[in-house]
């Protein structure tokens, strides 16, 4: 092998870069934090699979219909009526932002801007 030391440095740099997912986890493997679901309520507004994947679209839709069209109520697939409100409807059951929202969001680098205007239940409690 010609220029062996340079080539070996090159291989090491290549491995360091492309094996990043492996060595960044080294020595601190643990179970992923699981979001805490509400204990009393078993059913969300729509079914769980849909909520897991599409909740951000769902909330965005709520925001648009409420703020821009002035509609207040949402009727789900089963015909149940909900008031469209993040703080009053969603967070009534999911009453802990840190244990429900943030666990996944932090873990997956999702940076929603909900809480720039809305108040998390923890904060509401502080002011009551």
């Amino acid at each position: 092998m010609y220029n062996a030391n340079k080539v070996i440095i090159g291989i090491i740099v290549f491995l360091i870069f492309f094996a990043m997912p492996f060595w960044l986890n080294f020595g601190k493997v643990e179970a992923l934090p699981k979001p805490e679901l509400p204990k009393e309520e078993k059913k969300c507004i729509e079914d769980t699979d849909y909520m897991k994947a599409y909740h951000m679209k769902f909330l965005d839709e709520w925001r648009k219909t409420k703020v821009r069209e002035g509609k207040v109520y949402y009727i789900n697939k089963e015909g149940k009526i909900y008031k469209m409100s993040l703080q009053r409807t969603c967070m009534k059951c999911h009453d802990n932002k840190e244990k429900f929202c943030d666990r996944c969001h932090k873990n997956l680098v999702v940076q929603p801007d909900c809480w720039k205007c809305h108040l998390a239940p923890e904060e509401v409690k502080k002011w009551q």
Binding site: L24, K28, L108, Q111
Partner: peptide, 19 residues
């Protein structure tokens, strides 16, 4: 950016780049 799927506590540079 895809490191967010592979690392548990995502390093801050990945968060900054995503932001």
């Amino acid at each position: 950016r895809h490191l967010r799927f592979f690392v548990n506590e995502v390093p801050s540079f990945v968060q900054k780049i995503s932001a």
